[in-house]
Simulated assay, not measured.
Amino acid sequence: MVHVLGSRILLRPTDPQRSRDFYGRALGLAIAREFGTGPERGTVYFLGGGFLEVSGRSDVPPSPALRMWLQVADVHAAYEELRGKNVDVLRPPQEEPWGLVEMWIADPDGVRIALVEVPEHHPLRYRP
């Protein structure tokens, strides 16, 4: 068995500064650490229970199969805030058949990101 001690998503953007602006300024993710120098330096952001590392550079955008799922306290407030920052909102918040309230956005390279609110009545929150 592999004993995992930590984890992070590694993202190699086509334009590192544009991606740092998106994750750091538009989404407002807190920085866990930075390393290296220059335009392709690494920035590691907190993602709740995990991390996102934006470092290096790629000639092609990440695969469309890559998706992120970020739980937020209030998805409607996040929607209003991100619209005001001209973030590419792919779909506004709506309650899904499985009970979560989800909206979808995209980062500058087109990586799809679900912002998810777990309502009070949902089994992920409810503890009898």
Rank of each mutant, 00 (worst) to 15 (best):
F35R: 04
G36T: 07
T37Y: 05
T37A: 11
T37F: 07
G38E: 08
G38W: 02
E40S: 09
E40R: 09
R41I: 08
R41P: 07
G42M: 02
G42S: 08
G42I: 01
T43V: 15
T43H: 11
V44C: 09
Y45F: 15
Y45Q: 06
F46V: 13
G48A: 00
G49H: 14
G50V: 11
G50A: 15
G50T: 15
F51M: 02
L52G: 12
L52N: 11
V54T: 12
V54W: 04
S55L: 12
S55K: 13
G56T: 07
R57Q: 15
S58V: 03
S58R: 01
S58M: 04
V60I: 14
V60S: 14
V60L: 13
P61M: 05
P62C: 03
P62A: 09
P62Y: 01
P62D: 00
P64R: 14
P64A: 08
A65S: 11
A65V: 12
L66S: 01
L66G: 00
R67S: 01
W69N: 07
W69L: 11
L70D: 01
L70Y: 06
Q71S: 12
Q71E: 15
V72T: 03
V72Q: 03
A73L: 06
A73G: 07
A73V: 08
D74E: 10
D74C: 07
V75D: 01
V75G: 08
V75I: 06
